[in-house]
């Protein structure tokens, strides 16, 4: 019995219909379809970049996925949230709330805002070097996790006899102090259903040591860019080693290779989103490519980045997924309820 692979998808590519991406139905239709294919999760990226011919601007990704949560029941919802200009307290509480409204399906694709355009638009700080921004991501992730865990799971006791709503011994001040921010109190949002919504980190083999360290120490899911199977194999081995060195169980890290795909929805050469593994062609052939990579590299699955999500997602769900199922490489249906369930990640204790 072959090892099943994990499959997720970025919803950012809009092809040449960017105006539609401002309407809720654009997103809820896509996410509903992805759920029909039993995909592990979808991501919605973020960018402060000014609008241009391919982008109508971008809605807030947490809001987009919260809007879709009540209309779906299984698929994981993973927004990109930059830690550069946001308050770590807000990031943590927003993601905990996304986990509550989706009953355990939230994740967090961590990101930084490093462009010249963004810092002056938000104000408050100048453009910082990438190394500093990624170090801050590690702190923000640490702070977010501590806030999620600041409520023990059974803290709400509603004790009528004493009149106490909570057992306050089960709430903890986090007293986080970092070079860029500090957070003192417990979260306002009780422990999210998953305990910790999974943290995803995008990683390129050429990325800085700081980003590797972040992935090894904080990521539950690494979205890996690799041009060759051998590169992916080496990168995965290095990640697992570093995770073990950081005191983590390497079994609890999922490595998904990013693949830019055009299954007929693109507009010709050059339309593919940036990724080192690129594919243009029919879904059945993509199934073969993914199966080969999966077998030879040991990676856990793939994060597809279609040129146009509206144009390519039907082929993913109706052609690619069945082709993978024929090879016994993909689940026939969801077997769990939460994103951690889909990824085979244990729920943290507490």
């Amino acid at each position: 019995m072959p090892r099943e692979l994990h499959l997720s998808l970025a919803l950012d590519g809009t092809g040449h219909r960017p105006a539609e991406s401002l309407a809720a139905a654009h997103w809820t239709d896509l996410i509903g379809l992805a759920e029909q294919g039993a995909l592990d999760f979808v991501t919605v990226g973020d960018s402060p970049a000014p609008p241009h011919d391919d982008s109508a601007g971008r809605l807030d990704p947490v809001a987009v996925l919260a809007r879709a949560a009540p209309l779906t029941t299984r698929i994981g919802l993973v927004p990109a949230v930059s830690t550069t200009h946001t308050e770590p307290f807000r990031t943590s509480t927003a993601l905990a709330t996304l986990d509550h409204v989706s009953e355990g399906r939230a994740g967090w694709l961590v990101d930084v805002s490093s462009t010249e355009a963004e810092a002056p638009a938000v104000g408050g700080r100048g453009v910082a070097p990438a190394a500093e921004l990624w170090a801050e991501v590690a702190d923000a992730a640490e702070g977010a996790v501590r806030l999620w865990e600041s409520w023990e799971g059974d803290a709400e006791t509603r004790d009528g006899a004493t009149g106490r709503f909570i057992d306050r011994e089960r709430l903890h001040h986090i007293d986080f102090e970092g070079p860029h921010f500090s957070v003192r109190s417990p979260s306002n949002v009780p422990r999210p259903p998953q305990g910790r919504p999974p943290i995803a980190v995008a990683l390129d083999v050429h990325d800085s040591d700081g980003q590797w360290e972040l992935a090894a120490s904080h990521a539950d899911v690494v979205l890996l860019d690799a041009d060759q199977p051998s590169t992916a194999w080496l990168a995965r081995a290095a990640l697992l080693r570093r995770a073990a060195e950081a005191g983590r169980d390497p079994e609890a890290l999922r490595v998904l290779v990013r693949a830019a795909v055009d299954l007929g929805g693109g507009t010709g050469p050059g339309a593919l989103p940036p990724a080192e593994l690129r594919f243009t062609g029919a879904a059945a052939d993509l199934a073969g490519l993914l199966a080969d990579w999966h077998e030879t590299t040991g990676v856990d699955g793939f994060h597809l980045f279609p040129t146009s999500a509206p144009a390519d997602l039907p082929a993913v769900v109706h052609d690619l997924v069945p082709a993978l199922r024929e090879r016994s490489l993909f689940r026939a249906d969801y077997t769990g309820r939460t994103l951690r369930d889909h990824l085979g990640l244990p729920r943290p204790a507490g």
């Binding site: 947490v62 919260a66 927003a94």
Partner: peptide, 9 residues
């Protein structure tokens, strides 16, 4: 004690 994030809800 506690409440979810306003925007997300």
């Amino acid at each position: 004690v506690g409440r979810p994030d306003t925007f997300t809800v």
